[in-house]
């Protein structure tokens, strides 16, 4: 019975995540990212693109098994990020960053940003549609 409830809870969560994606009427669904297994990554910025429809950060950081990877991290778009307090020039190559991300379900080194912390400790969200982090950044 508990399995039934758990599987229902999972179905419900998936349906609600679909609903949230639809509700956002955002550019797309975020379902290709695994929201249930978020990762905390700390590393060095190797590239950064401020552009529509998404801003991207390339971060060289170890994964949860300690293997160094170059992560391509999808952020919201410049308009959303400006509205939540980002500035186009607040990140540059060689900066140290800590991020919470939802990785791609395929296992490729791509991810959706949930939260970001600059070297000086300032924290930023990725805007409403991307959803909040579910693990602490500190």
């Amino acid at each position: 019975m508990s399995i039934g409830i758990r599987s229902f809870a999972r179905t419900l969560a998936l349906l609600l995540s679909g609903l949230a994606a639809g509700a956002a009427q955002a550019h797309h669904s975020f379902a290709m990212f695994d929201n249930d297994h978020q990762l905390k990554l700390s590393g060095t910025v190797t590239d950064y693109k401020w552009q529509n429809p998404h801003v991207y950060i390339w971060l060289e950081a170890p994964d949860d098994k300690g293997e160094m990877r170059t992560w391509m991290i999808e952020c919201a778009n410049p308009g959303i990020l400006n509205r939540v307090g980002w500035k186009f020039n607040m990140i540059k190559p060689n900066d140290k960053l800590t991020v919470i991300v939802a990785p791609l379900r395929t296992g490729e080194p791509g991810a959706l940003l949930k939260q970001l912390k600059l070297a000086d400790g300032t924290k930023f969200s990725n805007g409403g549609p991307a959803g909040p982090p579910n693990i602490p950044i500190d």
Binding site: T11, L14, L15, S17, G18, A21, G22, H28, S29, F30, A31, M32, D34, R105
Partner: peptide, 9 residues
């Protein structure tokens, strides 16, 4: 909806 639920939008 099903594709979203599968994580393959």
């Amino acid at each position: 909806a099903e594709a979203n639920a599968r994580g393959e939008p």
